[in-house]
Nucleic acid binder design. Structure first.
Lengths: 252, 252
DNA sequence: TAGTGGTCTAGACCACTGC
DNA sequence: CAGTGGTCTAGACCACTAA
């Protein structure tokens, strides 16, 4: 005999709505009933409904468009295969691993890139073995899947390698950044990534259109050439509810 | 000239408290003021304070002990180095990679293990190439750092390899599971992990003492031997706010 | 028994959207 | 202008803890 622990109403309602969404009772991109309607239907206060919707927002299942309504999310889970990106990129030609994955899911992709020479913050500078505040080449990319922003990435490259090369162009050409680094005699030999989950900062919340209750997966990718020199640091932010990461490596 | 967007009060208060905690104004393990006191001090309703505290709970910065108060979290960020676990394990001897990391952080570690033969769910069975519902050897582990639960892991091993061996004992001996698999002629040759971030299920919430607003990092690790056969599937759940993951692999 | 946080209803006002 | 969700105050009751 276990004691029944009645769930709070906002959670019961959240569970009910989640089930309905996952069973496809609301088409992706369509709106839920309004909070007032649900309040009447389920016999609770609107604030209780609001709290339930907050839960679903935090999970990324719905998003709110203010003044219009609460919309069911449209995109499926996106997979990011870290270890095989080079191979995928080569197979995919100029498209890149990200675009190949988007096409697999039947999504239209778009991406902006902004190139600049910026002073490196202390942690980046330490990795690139330059003095803090010294400039490095940055490639800031923002990627969209069917017009939904799904990834921010800022890549840092040492100027003595990258300045004046195709790495400073918007289009890095076939095989992308790593192929160009190889052309320049700095082919990546090892990759390392650290992964954390945290709230979005203001910039990420704005650009990725995220709520503060949602989470980003923050990845720092470090590429080293055969001599052990760091040739690229890439900081990546992904809406956590939208992605699945995959890694693969040989036993030692 | 940008328009000032005043933050809602509960968020201003959450930011204020987060700063205070991160600057060490509340010692780890000590309690914040009560919600009523804060409501008086800051001139807001207690429900507004409660909402701010909800934010900090979701971030894992504090936990609530009902009837007692709101406690500042004690544990530092824990690092999980996926690629070098074998090496760390060997260096650490019988202690294992998890314990070695805990000792690095000055934490006392403890872990329970429960061994059983259980019918494999469909996805696990498919990986192990057995019929769904057929039994496999399971090792369910729960790990603690200074008496705080920080990890759940359920390992699945095929019975034809593992039954009656040291893999079915609580202590797998020096080098752990992978060394025993090697002894049995199934040394892991490659590892693959998929990583997702999601709300805790009921079991995880209970065993890891998590709020539903917090997130788990759910990892599925698959070990294959030299023939490509899956020799272990390990499902791992970590409180997302408590961990940092690290991966490393050679370029192709 | 006093104090803690958890939840609910009620009423109100706001900013934003679309007609 | 009506409808949407966002936020705040107010008052209330509950379960749990500690003394």
């Amino acid at each position: 005999m276990t004691i029944e622990t009645p769930q709070p109403r906002y959670r019961q309602l959240a569970d009910l709505l989640r089930d309905a969404i996952e069973r496809g009772q609301y088409a992706p991109g369509s709106a839920l009933e309004s909070e007032s309607e649900m309040a009447t239907r389920y016999g609770v206060d609107r604030r209780t409904v609001n709290r339930a919707v907050l839960t679903l927002r935090a999970e990324g299942l719905v998003r709110v468009e203010r003044g219009r309504g609460t919309i069911v999310r449209e995109l499926p889970l996106i997979r990011r295969d870290a270890a095989n990106r080079q191979r995928i990129r080569e197979e995919a030609g100029a498209r890149g691993a990200f675009q190949a994955e988007m096409e697999r899911l039947g999504l239209v992709t778009r991406s902006d890139v902004e190139i600049a020479e910026l002073p490196a913050p202390a942690d980046i500078a330490a990795l690139l073995a330059i003095d803090a505040g010294t400039s490095a080449l940055t490639r800031r990319r923002q990627m969209y899947a069917s017009n939904v922003p799904v990834q921010l990435a800022t890549s840092w490259l040492p100027l003595d390698i990258a300045a004046g090369t195709q790495l400073a162009e918007a289009d890095t050409g076939p095989g992308g950044t790593y192929s160009r680094l190889a052309d320049l005699g700095h082919a990546p030999a090892t990759f390392a990534e650290t992964v954390r989950v945290r709230p979005p900062n203001d910039n990420e919340a704005r650009l990725l259109r995220m709520d503060t209750e949602q989470r980003v997966i923050a990845i720092r990718r470090i590429a080293r050439d055969g001599t052990g020199r760091v040739v690229e640091v890439n900081d990546i932010a992904l809406p956590a509810h939208q992605w699945e990461l995959a890694y693969e490596w040989p036993a030692e």
